[in-house]
Amino acid sequence: MTTYCSYTDAELTTLLKDGDRVAYAEIYERYKNLLYINAFKKTGNSDDAQDIIQEVFIMLWAKHKKLVINKNLASFLYTCIHHKVLDLFTHQKIDERHVTKLKDFLLLTSNNTDYNIREKQLALIIEREIAALPEKMREVFVLSRYEGLSQKEIALTMNISEETVKSQVKNALKILRTKLGLFTFLLFLIRF
């Protein structure tokens, strides 16, 4: 009885096509280290190289009845390794793109959230300072800046002169500018 290790690759391939598990095991033992070295040189990663070898040999057994090996067995296996390495690199690039997009999304969401929080804080500060204005001045200011009424409309609504409206708005802006600081004040004016 001859051992499988003395068989040629062509003989082992023929036996493999017939479903011979021992021939399959011999092919694995004969090529696993050489294929690992080849895969490792291409990937630079031991785990990836091991996974590629495993995938090639799983495919070899799964398709053993339909195998078409035009060249010798070694060339066929090296070609399979090459294709698996290319698949790995393609998937890694896709994964990198997804990770990049996720990071960008999280950064954008974080920035938007931070911006929204600061905007709300600023709005609260502004509202508090407006609420601290004298009553009549506050009413004129709110009608002017929030309601968008003209000086004439405010004067009619509050039964005061247009000059008084103009003076009250001017004084309110002066007070707010002083209390809020120039930067905050400019942001407030741009917003409204």
Rank of each mutant, 00 (worst) to 15 (best):
T2F: 06
T3C: 09
Y4S: 01
S6V: 08
S6Y: 13
Y7P: 10
T8K: 00
D9T: 00
D9M: 00
L12Q: 00
L15Q: 01
L15H: 01
K17L: 14
K17D: 06
D20Y: 11
V22W: 05
A23P: 10
I27P: 05
Y28T: 04
Y31I: 10
N33A: 14
Y36H: 11
K42D: 03
T43D: 11
T43S: 12
T43Q: 10
T43W: 12
N45L: 01
N45Q: 08
N45I: 02
D51R: 11
D51P: 03
I52D: 11
I53M: 04
Q54I: 02
E55V: 00
V56C: 10
I58Y: 10
M59Q: 14
K63A: 08
H64S: 14
K65N: 11
K66P: 03
L67F: 02
L67I: 02
L67H: 01
N70M: 02
N70F: 02
K71R: 11
N72D: 14
N72G: 09
N72A: 00
L73R: 02
A74T: 15
T79Y: 12
H83D: 14
V85R: 12
L88N: 08
F89R: 09
I94K: 04
D95T: 10
D95V: 02
R97M: 10
R97E: 15
T100K: 09
K101L: 15
K101G: 14
D104R: 00
T109N: 14
N112L: 05
D114C: 06
N116T: 07
K120H: 14
L122Q: 11
A123N: 08
A123T: 10
I125T: 12
I126K: 01
I126D: 03
E127D: 08
E127Q: 10
E129R: 01
I130W: 09
I130M: 10
A131N: 12
E135R: 13
K136E: 15
V140Y: 03
V142P: 04
R145Q: 12
Y146K: 13
E147A: 14
E147N: 11
S150R: 05
Q151S: 13
K152S: 07
K152G: 05
E153G: 01
E153R: 07
A155M: 05
L156M: 08
T157A: 03
M158W: 03
I160R: 01
T164G: 00
V165N: 02
K170V: 01
N171A: 07
K174C: 05
I175C: 07
L176E: 04
T178E: 15
K179H: 07
L180V: 03
T184A: 08
L186D: 01
L187N: 04
I190T: 04
I190W: 06
R191C: 04
R191N: 08
F192W: 10
